[in-house]
Design a protein around this nucleic acid. Structure first.
Lengths: 145, 145
DNA sequence: CCAATAAAGGATATAAAGGTCTTTTTATTG
DNA sequence: CAATAAAAAGACCTTTATATCCTTTATTGG
């Protein structure tokens, strides 16, 4: 927190794909960006990087599109973070000091480290499939009205 | 988390002022930005907004500068956040949905809300003076080497 | 094989954050 | 009261994030 736009769209798209796509029911970029209400070409770029990282799959040509195979391994949310924003927000000093460590901490070092650690831990344990389950059960949403 | 550059510089400057300035020992922008190793004109802008919000004080003219009166009330860190970044990062949906609420939550709504709440609470309780104390005691630092 | 479809790739545009520069205003002091 | 020192104000520049557009490549069905 907070998440970049790229990460927001990536997460919404991946959760959506998790529930709505499969090897035999691919979704094209228009269908995805319409569903999750995100800018189409920008979302395309983001999905391309997820494909490159083997987080999602895609095929070209008629009937092609993006999909997540239902028998794919669970995807930790942190994988999406790594693909879009990276870890720098978690790793750099909260006050922007060049050197900030146990031996020479900034005044918020410990608090920051604790939050950062807990959050990374949470993002590592939570999977996209966990989040998708809530959506498929109607308990949560990735679409605007 | 994560903090903007403005907030980082603001916090470092205010903590520094807390320890090193007083009504009778004002510091000019060059002294401050040199000490905390921040871009001088940008830092000046930020301090100006803190003055407008009565978080710190300043006087013009020779011998003038910025200062925090030692008998000033404790300054909650959240006041600096409000002056620079605002609360939007805490308040908007973690996945960027337009409508995200208890009754129609995004898949990370509850986690996000919990972290956001804890963090705002921490920032409300912690004061700049608390942070400055650590620095004056040599336990933490706001300067680069 | 060809026409259509869809992602991939690369160049470009726009907005916001980060940062600088110049001029004006105010205060102090010799 | 003039010279100087310092913040305030406002215009401007740069970089990064966000977003779009156009061309290329791959795939498929007829």
């Amino acid at each position: 927190m907070m998440f970049s736009k790229s990460l927001e769209y990536a997460l919404r798209a991946v959760i959506y794909l998790c529930n709505e796509s499969s090897e035999h029911a691919k979704l094209n970029i228009n269908q995805i960006s319409t569903a999750i209400d995100s800018p189409e070409p920008f979302t395309a770029k983001i999905l391309q990087t997820l494909v490159r990282r083997n987080i999602i799959a895609s095929t070209k040509g008629p009937g092609g599109g993006f999909f997540i195979d239902s028998k794919a391994k669970p995807i930790p949310v942190i994988d999406i973070v790594d693909a879009t924003d990276g870890r720098s927000a978690f790793e750099r000093c909260g006050l922007g000091l060049k050197e900030c460590s146990e031996s020479r901490p900034c005044p918020i070092h410990n608090e920051f480290k604790s939050y950062s650690y807990k959050l990374q831990n949470l993002l590592t344990k939570k999977t996209v499939q966990d989040l998708a389950r809530g959506v498929s059960e109607g308990k949560s949403f990735v679409t605007n009205f």
